[in-house]
Nucleic acid binder design. Structure first.
Length: 495
RNA sequence: GCCCCCAUCGUCUAGGGGACUAGGACGUGGCCCUUUCAAGGCCAAGACAGGGGUUCGAAUCCCCUUGGGGGCACCA
């Protein structure tokens, strides 16, 4: 196995938007492939026609692309093992099933769902593990079941050995052994002619020459079945790696009730793909004892499956938020500006600027604003409220209450006086830059003998509309003389 | 009920017999910087689940207990 070139696959089932756990697996798959110069295959496991959701494919491709996980073979990419949809490979599975039956490793089962249900309920009530009783293993049982089934098509079951132990080698967990008596005769072929995962996976992994299977730990209990199937089919078992689950804050497996569960949700909330990649890549894997921010190239260079962890990890959103802030600050100004513009130009309801701000937004102007806001923002949409005043054409339409702020809530007369002084001061500033502005207003503070913070807060609110804003004089420089004076004059008139 | 996996600060983790008075990060608290809010800097609190072994020596190896997670479908 180690001599063959590495081939890994992501094999999701298109039943909804892909889960964060799936995407983390994709990251590990991709990393292993890129690190070793191998091939990353995408295969769609669409063998359950009842659960198939057509839109799921698009959100899968979108998720992978958003994270920058390109696949070498698969849908839209093609490849020597096409088609990459299991629903289009039914002949392969049928042939494999026939081969297993002929070799005595599998048998047709005519038991009805009703009988199986009743059987399992009885077993559960008797505190027994649910288990197929093997009626159709024998000629006689099969004949009996066939009568009950009417014209219903049979399923094909694997004839699992009743004795002995199956040992599965997991690259992370070592040898895991299972008593064969506890293992069920799994269904390989459904009565609708579609294979189950258990059959399709070995057939495809063999045909596609997959060398490493990275999958969630929920598969570990069926790993012995898979090993037996690979053996029965005469295939080499790939290296198996069962990754631990991602847990919600309550330590149960992450799911919809924990909120966002798709990377697309994070994209829409204003997270950066590199940050999400970095964060997910570090959930269950680490480079060393201190590195938190890792570039994609470093990930690829250093990734190794033996630094994978086997214990489940709680999804720590606060840390993701922090990391996203780091990535925002790491990003070149122009790129961040472009990204922000994309966001700000949306309709207000979708997280964009108020309609009063004229579009399109000026890229050069935005690039000057970015250094002022970048360290105040963890998520992209947070920039909206912080940046709006730069783009609004004229007055902010604030009432006296807002303008007076906390410090002058009980003394509007004083606020009005300060605003008119500020207006006069602003009118005298030349040139209009932050140094001159600061000097002028500092002088005003001294002349009026007011608290500097109090005066600046008034001006901040008048100019930006909010008590929390980027640095005042840099902001005023960018907003420009005309609009600043207009907003100050407006403030005076509101009292 | 049965089977399997896992177990270091609240969380993500480093650690793979002596380098551990257990390191880093997020978060939390404090201080500094400061025109607001951040960012940044410094400091602090905070963990080897418990019990047995093995060993001169155990966070590291073994066993048991406990706790958590997962699985037991004509779903993947």
């Amino acid at each position: 196995m180690p001599d063959r070139p590495v081939r890994v696959r992501l094999a999701p089932s298109p039943t909804g938007t892909p889960h964060l756990g799936t995407m983390r697996q994709a990251i590990f798959d991709w990393l292993l492939a890129r690190h070793s110069g191998g091939t990353f295959v995408l295969r769609i496991e669409d063998t359950d026609r009842n659960r198939f959701v057509p839109e799921a494919l698009d959100s899968l491709y979108e998720s992978l692309r958003w994270l920058g996980l390109d696949w070498d073979e698969g849908p839209e990419a093609g490849g020597p093992h096409a088609p990459y949809f299991q629903s289009q490979r039914l002949d392969l599975y049928a042939a494999a099933a026939k081969r297993l039956i002929d070799a005595g490793h599998a048998y047709e089962c005519y038991c009805t769902p009703e009988r199986l249900d009743a059987m399992r309920n009885a077993q559960r009530e008797a505190k027994q593990p649910p288990h197929y009783d093997g009626r159709c293993r024998t000629e006689a049982g099969r004949a009996e079941a066939k009568l009950e089934a009417g014209d219903r098509s049979p399923v094909v079951r694997f004839d699992m050995p009743d004795e002995g132990v199956t040992v599965v080698a997991d690259a992370l967990r070592g040898d895991v052994s299972f008593e064969n008596v506890r293992l069920d005769d799994a269904v390989l072929m459904k009565s609708d002619g579609f294979p189950t995962y258990h059959l399709a996976m070995p057939v495809d992994d063999h045909e596609m020459q997959i060398t490493h299977v990275i999958r969630g730990e929920e598969w570990l209990p069926s790993a012995p079945l898979h090993k037996c199937l690979f053996d029965a089919l005469g295939y080499d078992l790939p290296v198996l790696i069962h990754t631990p689950s991602i847990l919600g804050p309550d330590k149960s497996k992450l799911s919809k009730r924990h909120g966002a569960q798709s990377v697309l949700d994070y994209r829409d909330a204003g997270y950066l793909p590199d940050a999400v990649f970095n964060f997910l890549g570090l959930l269950g894997w680490s480079l060393d004892d201190k590195t938190e921010i890792i570039s994609r190239d470093e990930f690829v260079e250093h990734f190794s499956t033996d630094r994978l962890l086997k214990s489940p990890a709680v999804f720590n959103k606060e840390k993701l938020d922090w990391m996203n802030g780091e990535y925002i600050r790491l990003m070149p100004v122009e790129r961040l500006a472009a990204l922000l513009i994309e966001w700000l130009e949306r309709p207000e309801a979708d997280g964009g600027l108020p309609a009063a701000a004229p579009r399109p937004l000026d890229a050069a102007y935005t690039a000057r604003i970015v250094p002022l806001v970048r360290e105040r923002v963890k998520l992209l949409p947070e920039a909206r409220d912080m940046m709006a005043f730069f783009y609004l054409p004229d007055g902010l339409d604030l009432d006296a209450e807002t303008l007076a702020g906390k410090a002058f809530a009980g003394d509007h007369d004083k606020a009005r006086l300060l605003f008119s002084e500020a207006l006069v001061t602003a009118e005298g500033v030349d040139p209009w830059n932050h140094e001159a502005l600061e000097a002028a207003f500092q002088a005003l503070v001294e002349r009026l003998e007011v608290k500097r913070g109090d005066l600046y807060m008034l001006i901040r609110i008048a100019i930006s509309g909010r008590p929390v804003a980027p640095p005042l004089f840099d902001s005023m420089e960018l907003v420009g003389r005309e609009r600043c004076i207009e907003r100050l004059r407006d403030a005076v008139n509101r009292f």
